Simulated scan of single mutants.
Amino acid sequence: MTIFEIIILAIIQGITEFLPISSSAHLLLPAELLGWRTQGLAFDVAVHVGSLLAVLIYLRREVTDMTVDFFRHGFTAQQTDNSRLAWWVVVGTLPIILVGFLLKDWIELNARTALVMAITTISFGLLLWYADATAKLTKKMAQMRVGQAVIIGLAQILALIPGTSRSGITMTASLMLGFDRESAARFSFLLSIPAILGAGLLSTLDLLKAADAVDWTALFYGAAFSFVSAYLCIYLFLSWIARIGMLPFVIYRLILGAILLWFVFA
């Protein structure tokens, strides 16, 4: 890829990683519209590094408190809100690790198509609209219990299907369980940390096995622009979501799904 392509795709990846609009569907568009080649392993590693740094730095206080309390109280009877939250992140991550390990190759070969992405972008967008429209919005993240963490974690499995949106489906599940929008978003972002880390490690292992030379310039630009766009995205989303709700993202998903369907049937 050219440096221009790397920068544009890194910005797209950084933004869509955390918004409930599907990063995989967006990364398909440049290839369909402009004939760009799909990103390689080096790019995957770079953007995962950038996105991971962005969420870790933005949520550094929560992550630090959760980590400290987890090792101090997580294995005792004197649990704190932070140690429990750390456990809920672990519990919510286990399902996608187990299922993803078993189905990753099959999904890559059979589900990464424009038609699948169009269907999931539209259908899970409508589900997000329903969840937001009927949500009670009464629970805070500190009120989460293990059963709710399990449900959100099971919902996250659906994100293995391209076009679903990992952040979108976890926020949908949280809203259906009665959590307010900011709590749903924050827990989704916390869940993204092990998810992005795992995806990045898998890409790194594949990169190490590849015979191609590593383009370190591509890595730098990919990581840098992914970091900046992801950080701004998280900041703006958490600042606005309580006021604007999920409807703008639902409408956007419907438009995006319609565009993908046009590519399929045109």
Score class of each variant (00 low, 15 high):
R112P: 01
F43A: 01
S167I: 08
A213L: 13
T134M: 00
F265Q: 10
S23T: 11
V90F: 13
L126I: 15
S174I: 11
K136Q: 14
Y221L: 14
L94R: 03
C233Y: 05
R72H: 10
R145A: 14
K104Y: 12
L190C: 10
S123I: 12
A25I: 11
I161R: 01
V45K: 07
S183F: 01
L52K: 03
A31C: 12
L175G: 08
L59D: 08
A266V: 13
L260P: 01
H48Y: 09
L202H: 03
S203D: 02
I15Y: 07
A111T: 09
Y58V: 14
D215F: 07
P20T: 11
T76W: 04
W129T: 03
L177K: 09
E5S: 04
F75H: 04
G153T: 07
I251V: 15
F124K: 01
G35S: 05
I193C: 09
R166E: 06
L85T: 14
V47M: 02
L9M: 13
Q148S: 12
I7G: 01
M176N: 07
S229Q: 08
D65P: 02
R181A: 11
W262T: 13
G178Q: 06
R37Q: 13
T113N: 12
T80G: 05
A223M: 08
L28V: 15
A118I: 06
V250Y: 01
L98W: 09
F225N: 00
T2V: 10
L208N: 13
L247C: 00
K104E: 06
M117Q: 07
M1D: 01
I255Y: 04
I122T: 11
L28F: 07
R243Q: 12
H73E: 06
F225S: 00
A155V: 08
Y231P: 02
C233K: 03
W36M: 14
A258E: 08
F189N: 05
S24D: 10
A224E: 02
I107E: 00
M176P: 03
E182P: 00
V55M: 07
Q39C: 05
A218R: 06
V146G: 10
V89I: 15
L260A: 03
L29S: 09
L207M: 15
V146P: 08
S229G: 06
I15A: 08
M176Y: 13
I234H: 08
V55S: 01
T38H: 11
Q143P: 03
G35R: 10
Y252H: 08
S51R: 04
S24N: 11
L201A: 13
T164I: 11
A173F: 11
A77E: 13
A218P: 04
H73G: 06
E62N: 14
N110H: 14
S51L: 07
E32H: 07
L256E: 02
L154G: 00
A142R: 15
L201C: 13
W240F: 15
V63K: 05
V146D: 06
L208A: 15
V45A: 07
L160P: 02
M117I: 12
S123D: 02
K140G: 14
G100F: 06
S83I: 12
A155Q: 01
L85A: 10
L109E: 12
K140E: 14
A210C: 09
